[in-house]
């Protein structure tokens, strides 16, 4: 078990370890029978564990190191990928990936947060926490998409925008705000998929779209459960309570009318069967694109306005 592995996965890892051990032995009496027995036990245990995950545990699945990131989706779902760099003003931000590719027969622009997997990569990608230049790069590519009539696919997976001195000096708030207003009026289809963590403004800054869907174990929240716990409970360890209170999982957001659909994940989460995950995500995106391609740019922008206009719950005398 790696130190970052969620505790509810420990019994499953143990079973996997025993299967691997047995597989190392030469074939012989009862070996394959025992492996089969352990495999079916693993399948059942995985299904049981994942059926009853609470909101904090789902957050841990959303943050799982092995979970597919935007570059994995690009590799699995597209070809002719050309990654483009830089915001033309300050720097290139590795925490956001942007470019063009062919997706099921059409050219699309892709933007997404990239977290990295190894320690070195994770540091290089700043753990998927963009700086202002990342948001400005994403916007630049989205404007190119609009100019050349290509739809935008956005993949959201970030703990949040990076809180640092340089980020503030270069206008983190302005960069996010600019994206919100520009995306609201962008005259090309935008399809957003929250694949992991939807961390507040840092997620929304590439999350305004005509279709917004979430993977089953993805989360999307106004502040991280840890941050919320620290402020409201004055105790970071109350993150589980905070996750429950804020209702941050995909089914919660569907119920609140914020997202259009939940994309089911394989048993054991996206990382347990990435190929199946890529297929489902690809199908949902393709369906959305086919629907949106029917609309004129003006119709798209009007429908997008209406979509966000109705969000919010209040009373009126």
């Amino acid at each position: 078990m790696s130190p970052s592995e969620p505790s509810f996965e420990a019994p499953l890892s143990e079973l996997r370890r025993r299967i691997e051990e047995l597989e190392a032995y030469p074939p012989g009496s009862g070996r394959s029978k025992e492996i089969d027995r352990l495999r079916s036990q693993l399948t059942k245990a995985t299904a049981d564990v994942y059926k009853t995950l609470n909101r904090w545990q789902k957050t841990q699945v959303a943050r799982h190191h092995d979970r597919p990131h935007v570059r994995d989706y690009v590799e699995a779902l597209t070809n002719n990928w050309v990654e483009l760099h830089g915001d033309r003003a300050f720097a290139d931000d590795p925490a956001i990936v942007a470019g063009f590719a062919t997706f099921r027969g059409r050219t699309v622009a892709i933007v997404g947060h990239q977290k990295g997997r190894s320690t070195k990569q994770r540091i290089h990608r700043n753990f998927g926490q963009p700086r202002p230049e990342g948001y400005r790069k994403a916007m630049r590519i989205m404007k190119l998409a609009e100019k050349f009539g290509r739809p935008v696919l956005s993949f959201v997976d970030t703990p949040g925008a990076y809180p640092g001195i340089g980020a503030e000096e270069r206008g983190q708030a302005e960069a996010i705000a600019r994206n919100l207003i520009e995306m609201a009026a962008l005259e090309t289809p935008i399809v957003v998929t929250v694949t992991g963590e939807g961390g507040s403004g840092g997620a929304l800054a590439i999350g305004v779209g005509d279709r917004v869907t979430m993977l089953e174990y993805a989360v999307y929240s106004v502040i991280s459960p840890e941050g919320c716990a620290a402020i409201l409970w004055k105790d970071q360890s109350k993150r589980r309570e905070a996750a429950e209170a804020m209702r941050i999982t995909a089914p919660d957001l569907l119920e609140l009318g914020i997202i259009d659909a939940v994309i089911p994940e394989p048993t054991g989460g996206a990382h347990a069967d990435p190929e199946a995950t890529f297929r489902s995500v690809g199908d949902v995106i393709e369906k959305a694109l086919i629907e949106l391609e029917e609309l004129t740019p003006r119709e798209l922008v009007t429908a997008r306005y209406e979509k966000f206009r109705v969000l919010g719950v209040y009373e009126e005398a």
Binding site: V222, L256, I258
Partner: peptide
């Protein structure tokens, strides 16, 4: 108000 509050950012900006 959870993520509903977050969405107000997009709503106002639009």
């Amino acid at each position: 108000e959870g993520v509903l509050s977050l969405m107000q950012m997009a709503k106002i900006s639009a």
